[in-house]
Design a binder for these strands. Structure first.
Lengths: 312, 312
DNA sequence: ATATATATACTCGAAATGAGTATTATTGGG
DNA sequence: CCCAATAATACTCATTTCGAGTATATATAT
């Protein structure tokens, strides 16, 4: 491929939740790094970008995509390399949501917090933030070429990892860690191998971790105003299961009673009259998603709220 | 250009507001339809997609982009044609916000409601909705190939133009009108020329009107949770000017006293102590945007609200 | 002075939100 | 059988937000 040709890469972050574990479908390509299902866009064969994506995913993972949404198109020079490949690749990333199904050969569900361990605040603030990330970012600020650049870096570090955790800034945080040389991909893309400060999370092929970060950010944001979770749930579920799924995606805990009130008041679910048989505790009613809300209300969704303090 | 090559087109919807008029910068290409500034992505010359866009815009309009945001990447077969050109064009659309400046040669600010007259609800519901659009959509439903498809069409028509106007669904509405054959581009792209039902709004080159629809939709949505308006305002402004700008973009009126309260309570602006000299009425204080809020609060913005009833 | 236009302050009730306490239904162990 | 543990569900309460309005202040034009 010559230096000034463009090709378009289509990649999908296919997300599912199993219990408390949000996960993403990765393909085991010839012993290399974890990869999202992907392939080049072929104008002769694909009528739309999305139909191209569906074909590739179908071939590689043997299953049909349901809910699918385009995320972003990346074209930066030098962010799509693994070895020294030829022309420029412009990368179109997609988010897909699905109920968890059996894996196809060479395919595997992997918890997304393997790639972003600093994003899971459900139990506590991840210790690595104080022990590794903040000190390294302090150094990154100090190493800035000039004071203006240092101020900008300090600012970014503060917005990303300082007071007031905003769970939606997943991409911003990953990009900052990349530029600060705290993730593997930075060294791979720049050819450097020296002074590796840290190696946070599991790296991925090409720019796939960036795409996954975009996917998580989008999902966390959209969750609050569109009923996307239900794409990830079984046909019936208890309210606690629903809450656990949302928490898994958002990476933080929610207030149980208020969560139920929210879901009920918005008419997002309806009881089935059936109950589950839990190991302990009172049995919970099984609910189903009321698809009708999509017509009734302009923008139904779960406004998680909770800017003021921690849920419980 | 051969049939199975891809090229990437970069287009920018550059938006400004002058008084009550939201407008977009269009280029007068050889007597053809209105076009957004655009050009092909050149991997040899452009380090990123956005820098490529900036180069093209700079060449065509002689001015520097400020706030810029990627919108969407379109790749549908047959939606980028004006005449029968060669290979496939994948189109990356951008939104840019700017204060209104003088026009460069061959360049012109045009009110965006020329392209989307049904989107301006500031005075009243546009009459064309009841007189033209709804009847035509009724016919579109009736002409559906089967009853399932008819139900889907009825559903879409209702969400887009029925009860409960959602000002953010700009793209959905344009796409529906396109498919229903109510906009010029539909006939141009499909080569048909017969049974033209209507010809709503001013058409644009290629898929530029679709990109503009995406831009308006995004802007209307984001306005509610990010302080984007200020990119469009002069350094100082009265609160009424600010409100008129938001109204112009949102396409609907807001409650004046509540708007002030919102802006003030959120700490988005600060008074300068200076006052304007209006033609009539009490002089208004001039305010400036408090850039600091971007640091202080995680997601400042203007939550317009107003789902319950009409503003006043 | 008066009409008109605009700015700004303040009020009021309804709804949404955060953070609980209280009560009910179940299991498993003594 | 009673009790601790666990989970579901109901209810309370103060605060904040939001829609909608009234009241008052400060200009200009006539």
């Amino acid at each position: 491929m010559s230096k000034d040709t463009v090709s378009i890469g289509l990649s999908a972050a296919i997300v599912a939740v199993e219990g408390e574990h949000p996960s993403v479908l990765v393909v085991a390509h010839e012993g290399s790094q974890d990869a999202l299902p992907f392939g080049p866009f072929d104008p002769a064969d694909h009528r739309t970008l999305e139909s191209g994506l569906r074909k590739w995913v179908g071939e590689q993972t043997k299953f049909e995509l349901g809910y699918t949404e385009q995320l972003y198109t990346f074209g930066d020079k030098g962010r799509h390399l693994s070895a020294g490949s030829g022309g420029r690749v412009v990368s179109v990333g997609y988010l897909a949501l699905t109920r968890r199904v059996r894996e196809a050969p060479d395919t595997q569900w992997r918890g997304w917090y393997h790639y972003f361990p600093w994003e899971d605040w459900r139990d506590t603030k991840p210790a690595m933030i104080d022990s590794v990330i903040l000190p390294a970012l302090k150094k990154f600020v100090k190493d800035a070429p000039d004071s203006e650049s240092a101020a900008l870096r300090r600012e970014r570090a503060n917005v990303c990892f300082g007071e007031g955790w905003d769970e939606e800034r997943v991409l911003e945080r990953y990009e900052l860690l990349y530029e600060a040389g705290l993730v593997e991909e930075f060294y791979r893309d720049s050819g450097q191998n020296s002074k590796k400060l840290a190696n946070l999370g599991t790296p991925m092929l090409f720019d796939h971790r960036r795409i996954l970060a975009t996917a998580i950010a989008r999902l966390r944001g959209k969750l609050k105003y569109r009923p996307l979770v239900f794409e990830l749930m079984a046909p019936t579920f208890t309210l606690l299961e629903l809450q656990r799924a949302v928490e898994a995606l958002a990476g933080r805990r929610l207030h149980k009673q208020n969560f139920r009130r929210l879901v009920a008041d918005q008419g997002l679910v309806e009881g089935t009259g059936k109950f589950n048989a839990p190991a302990r505790g009172r049995p919970a009613e099984l609910f189903r998603f009321r698809r009708e809300v999509l017509r009734e209300r302009p923008a139904p969704g779960l406004r998680l709220g909770g800017r003021r303090a921690r849920g419980g």
